[in-house]
Computed example of a mutant assay.
Amino acid sequence: MPNPTPSARYDTPWKAALSHAFRAFMAFYFSELSKEIDWSKRPRFRDKELAGISLGRPPGGLVAGKLVEVRLLDGRVQWVLIHIEVQSQRDAALARRVLDYNYRIFNEYAQPVASVVLLADDDPDWRPTAFHNRILGTVMGISFSVAKLLDYSGLTDELSASHNPFAWLTLAHLRTQQAGHDADQLYAAKWQLTKVLYQHGWRKERIIVLFKVIDWMMALPEPYQQRYWHAVLKLEKERKMEWISPLEQSFMDKGWEKGLEKGRRDGVAAVLERQLTRRFGALPKSVRTRLARASMAQLEAWSDVLHEARSLKELFK
């Protein structure tokens, strides 16, 4: 029985790419907004805090959520938070979720929050840009900026030629969607994109990050993956480049999964520590140590009963 083609994996690749090249992301999908940001001040990622501002179980199709602190060129405010969502499936609750996150982030930091959404689904007619409630003279809601990957589907040559890494990632995502579970088509697309990756002359760090992105996103059945890996090693040898070692390849998937899990746990712990400090004052070292060592399940359990606890002793009991 032939090995089935694994399901496409979009979450880790998009998060890795956003962390690696956030400015390029904004410049490619939201160019007008990017022009308002002071890029001389390095953006600060607040992913741990975002992980703690949870709306419950992650919705289907959400592949990346990011929270980034930036400065603006006009100096109107000291700093601004940009909340980013990448959505790979149609979701009727998306606009409402953007409103919920925007408000909760604003309420947490008392700073302006801009929300931007990249729609990476396969429905050309789905383009949510707002959520509003109007009742008895009161209007509550949000309008947000949106970009759609399908809008680039007919621009293969332009995407391949662009030096922006998100042009290349857009092409990779679209080709992955188009291939579905057809291993031959997926292999051909992955190999073609790999060759394009090496043609751009990007620095070593970027090539390694993007190689991991495509290898994770365009998951192949084992025989195809072995064939692909041998082709990559041959290409590097021909170009006298030895950037992706077999050892790096073998630990690639496990390392990313472990890192994402730890990042989410640390984020929940940080938010819970801040909430406890606000309620009970400065925390003793023993409590901070307990939070640092707790499992995700334990942190969530404490968070659930925090509003009922009258003391730290009662909470941890």
Rank of each mutant, 00 (worst) to 15 (best):
R290Q: 14
S250N: 05
A167I: 03
R227W: 02
N3L: 03
R46I: 04
K234T: 05
L55S: 02
L276E: 08
L55V: 10
D182A: 04
A269K: 03
Q199A: 15
T138H: 01
W126D: 00
E236Y: 04
S303L: 04
W79C: 14
G267S: 04
P2E: 05
D100R: 11
S295D: 06
N107Y: 06
A172N: 07
F22Q: 02
W202I: 01
D122M: 06
W191N: 13
L220W: 07
P246E: 04
G141A: 05
Q226T: 06
Y10I: 10
L233D: 13
F251E: 13
H200I: 10
A301I: 08
A130E: 15
E273N: 03
I208M: 10
S143P: 11
R23T: 11
Q111T: 12
M1T: 12
D122Y: 01
D253P: 06
T170A: 00
I244N: 07
F316Q: 07
D184I: 10
L81F: 10
P128K: 05
R104D: 13
A16V: 06
A147I: 00
D157T: 02
E273Y: 02
D125K: 04
Q225K: 15
L73Q: 14
R278D: 13
L315M: 03
G61H: 09
R227K: 12
H132R: 01
K254M: 14
S19A: 09
M26E: 12
H307Y: 13
W202C: 03
R265W: 11
V271P: 05
L306Y: 02
D38I: 02
E158K: 07
Q275S: 13
K237T: 10
R46T: 04
K254Q: 14
V209C: 06
P128C: 05
S115N: 05
D266Y: 03
R288D: 00
A189F: 02
D122W: 00
Y103K: 01
W39N: 04
R76M: 09
A114P: 05
M252V: 10
E314A: 11
K41S: 12
D123K: 05
T5D: 11
G52K: 14
A51D: 11
W243A: 04
